[in-house]
C-alpha cells in the first residue's frame, strides 16, 4: 500500500501516520455511513418543514414575522468559523501531534459552537416571549423548532464530545483510537455546518423572502 492511497473518503491521515491511516479505514467509513443516515433524518425534517411552513400556519404567525435575519447571519458566521477552527485542530494533530495546539484550537471551536447554541436559545426565547410563537402555536412552528432544535441538539452533543476528547487528548495522548475519534468528531462538526447551510437558506432566508 502506498502512503498516499486513500482508504476512505474525506479527512485523512494518509502520509503522516500509515498505521493510524490503516486503522482509520473501517471506523471512518462506518462513521460516514452514520452521518449519511443522520443526513436522511435531517432531510425528512426539511421536507416536513417545507410543507408545514406553508400549509401549517393556522392562526399562528408567518415565518417572515418571527425570524431575525441578523441573528441568523451571526449564527452562520459563528458556526462557519468554528468549523474552520476545527480544521486547524486536525492539522495540528495530523502533522505535529501538538497537544497544546490541538487543545487551543478545540477550545476556540468549542467557544464558537457554544456561542452558536446560546444565540439560538436566545432566538427561541425572543420568539416565545415577544412574538407569541412557541412550538405549540402552529404546525409551522412545531416543524421549525424540531428542525432547528435537532440541529442545536447535535451541536450541543458535539460540544460534550469535544470536552471528552480534550480530556482524552490530555490523559491518553495521541493514541490511534484518540486520533480516529477526533477525526470522526471533525467529520461530525463539518457535516453539521453543511446541514446549517440548508437551515439558513431554506428556513430563514427563503422564509423571509417568500
Amino acid at each position: 500500500m502506498s502512503l498516499s492511497e486513500r482508504l476512505h473518503p474525506g479527512l485523512n491521515l494518509a502520509g503522516t501516520d500509515p498505521e493510524g491511516h490503516e486503522a482509520a479505514e473501517e471506523v471512518l467509513f462506518g462513521f460516514w455511513i452514520f452521518l449519511m443516515s443522520d443526513l436522511v433524518l435531517f432531510a425528512v425534517l426539511f421536507a416536513t418543514y417545507a410543507a408545514m411552513s406553508v400549509q401549517g400556519i393556522a392562526d399562528g404567525p408567518l415565518p417572515a414575522e418571527v425570524f431575525d435575519l441578523t441573528a441568523a447571519f451571526v449564527e452562520t458566521l459563528l458556526l462557519l468559523l468554528s468549523s474552520f477552527a476545527f480544521g486547524f485542530a486536525i492539522l495540528a494533530m495530523k502533522y505535529r501531534e501538538d497537544r497544546r495546539g490541538v487543545l487551543v484550537w478545540l477550545l476556540l471551536t468549542g467557544v464558537l459552537g457554544a456561542a452558536f447554541v446560546a444565540m439560538e436559545l436566545h432566538d427561541y426565547y425572543v420568539m416565545i416571549t415577544q412574538h407569541a410563537a412557541p412550538p405549540q402555536a402552529s404546525g409551522f412552528l412545531s416543524a421549525y423548532y424540531l428542525l432547528t432544535g435537532t440541529h442545536a441538539l447535535h451541536v450541543s452533543s458535539g460540544l460534550v464530545w469535544m470536552a471528552i476528547m480534550s480530556i482524552q487528548i490530555a490523559v491518553l495522548g495521541f493514541t490511534a483510537p484518540v486520533k480516529l475519534r477526533l477525526m470522526r468528531l471533525a467529520l461530525f462538526w463539518h457535516m453539521l455546518d453543511v446541514v446549517w447551510i440548508g437551515i439558513f437558506t431554506f428556513v430563514y432566508l427563503y422564509g423571509v423572502a417568500s
Partner: peptide
C-alpha cells in the same frame, strides 16, 4: 414527532392548528 405531539402539545399530526 408523534411523541412531541403527545408529550409537549406540538402540532405535527393533530386535527387543527396546522397539523397534517
Amino acid at each position: 414527532m408523534l411523541a412531541l405531539d403527545r408529550y409537549a402539545g406540538f402540532h405535527f399530526f393533530t386535527n387543527g392548528d396546522g397539523g397534517n
